[in-house]
Amino acid sequence: MACFLIPAAEAVITTVAAKIIKAKEEKDNGNLSLTDIKTDDTPKLTFSRKLGWLNKLLWGGSALLAFEHIWHGEVVPYFPFLTAVQEGETAAMLAEMGSAGVLMAVLITTVWLGMLGVSYIIEKRPDKASDTAEETQ
């Protein structure tokens, strides 16, 4: 019905948050337009960039799901834009948004958290190239 609106709403919030965090990071780094901060010769991704992954997942998924809803005639190009509202099925639509929509947002956020975990482990792991160089010495 309109389940994609929940991930889309989350996308709006995370996009705004990413912009604020990026501005703060740039300010903290002396107005240098750094996308990556390097510490101890190990490239470290900024949090705003990692939040960008979630934005892309949410926006991309919402856009393609919006198309699916247009395909099925659940979203129309005229007011009130949602056929469920037009046909007096607002309660059913809200229930679906509360179940499927919230589950979608939760799953995508969980996958993103998993990605954060993996990137944290990779950043902590010593570089393979330097490892091989040390071993050959």
Partner: peptide
């Protein structure tokens, strides 16, 4: 190409929820 990856994975995850339901 990364843009395509994010878009398709995002949609796949959302449709996966639909499939489970």
């Amino acid at each position: 190409v990364g843009i395509l990856c994010w878009m398709y994975w995002g949609a796949s995850l959302m449709w996966f929820v639909d499939a489970i339901i």
